[in-house]
Structures are given as C-alpha cells and as structure tokens.
C-alpha cells in the first residue's frame, strides 16, 4: 500500500486514520448522550411541570394539609366528571354531579366504581382540574386517587374524596371542574 497524500492538513494516511477514529469516537459519545437526553426528558418534563404548575401536576400531588378559614360570602360551583381510560372494564361515575361550596371549608363527596369483569382488578384514578389556573387552589385532604384501588370480581363501592378550596382563588373563577380518568391497571399490576 503506497502512501497517498490526502486529507485536511496534508496528514499521512496513518495520521488521517487516527484522526478519523478519534472524531468518530467523540461523535458516537455525542450520539449516546442524545439517546440518554431523550430519556432524561422524562424527569425533566415532570420537574418543569411541578415548577411551572403546568398540566395539573399539583392536582396529581398527594394529601394536602390545610386549615379551614371559611369565606361565607363567596359561593363557588364545583362540578364532578368521570372519564374512563378504557371502555368496558368499569362502571364509574360521581354520586353528586355538582356542589355549591364556600372557599376555606372542607367538603366530602364520593365517586362510585364497579368492576364489570369476572376477574380481580386494580384501577387508578388520575385527577384533572380546570380551569388550569385554579389547580393550585384546589386541595384534596383525602382522595381515592392517592392509591390504586383493588376490586374483587363484580365488586362495586363508593370511594371518598375530601377537599377544600383555598379562599385565595382568583375572584374571576366561580366554577371549577374536577375530572377523574379511571385507568385499568390490572395488566400492569400483574407484571
């Protein structure tokens, strides 16, 4: 093999090969980094949502500790909506469609769910509150959505939620909607 002059700064073939190899290695590391970055976006996304309050991150958060400070002069409507992640596995609806409430006071209500399948199942409710800017003022001190719910075949039951609306809720908001999506986790739980 004869020495053929070529390449960037007139390198020898061997130098050229070494330079190529080292740049290739660095680019492969860059590629691996990009792949890792794709996965890093998952926690980053959650962090960003928590920091900015986007996407109801607060609504999905756990038990809130709040003290009652009732504002009897203000009345707000809270509506309850039930959605299903997949059709056919559960019956799922709110026992009360809507409530008139005062901010700063604790209220209780229930959602009813029944397992329609002939096998034991597990489900998880994921809450969503709208309008989005009210999320940080809606606190749940007790909720069936805090943990997966187990059902025997055909079992149905009422599931409680206790909530309080912060009196600092912006004055322009007079109606809140609390929606639950009910997801069948039986497959995932069985892993």
């Amino acid at each position: 093999m004869s020495e053929i002059p070529n390449g960037g700064e007139g390198l020898s073939r061997e130098q050229q090969r070494r330079a190529n190899r080292s740049l290739t290695a660095r680019l492969l590391v860059f590629t691996a980094g990009s792949f890792a970055f794709g996965f890093a976006l998952v926690p980053l996304y959650d962090v960003l949502c928590k920091v900015t309050g986007i996407g109801n991150a607060e609504a999905k958060a756990g038990r809130a500790e709040v003290r009652e400070a009732v504002d009897p002069n203000r009345t707000i409507t809270v509506e309850f909506i039930a959605n299903q992640g997949s059709v056919g596995s559960y019956e799922f609806y709110p026992r009360t469609q809507s409530m008139r409430i005062h901010p700063g006071k604790l209220y209780d209500t229930t959602f009813y769910a029944r397992n329609l399948t002939p096998v034991p199942s597990v489900a998880q409710a994921v809450p969503s509150i709208s309008p989005g800017e009210s999320v940080q003022y809606f606190h749940k001190t007790e909720c069936f959505c805090f943990s997966p719910q187990k059902f025997k075949p055909g079992e149905g039951r009422d599931m409680p939620i206790r909530f309080i609306v912060d009196p600092h809720l912006p004055a322009k908001i007079d109606k809140l909607t609390l929606a639950y999506a009910f997801f069948d986790l039986t497959q995932n739980a069985a892993r």
Partner: peptide
C-alpha cells in the same frame, strides 16, 4: 446525531409501555 437518538428513545419507551408495562405515557401508571 442530536435528534435521531431522541426518536430512538421515544419509540423505545413506546415499546416498553406496550410489552413491559412501564408507564412513560400511560396516565394510569
């Protein structure tokens, strides 16, 4: 090389959500 690996990551997450019951995109999980 910046974005193709991110696509590879995204479709890998779809794959594990489907076959290994991870919950990258599953709201229930």
């Amino acid at each position: 090389i910046l974005v193709m690996p991110v696509l590879a990551g995204a479709v890998t997450m779809l794959l594990t959500d489907h076959f290994f019951h991870t919950s990258f995109f599953n709201a229930g999980g």
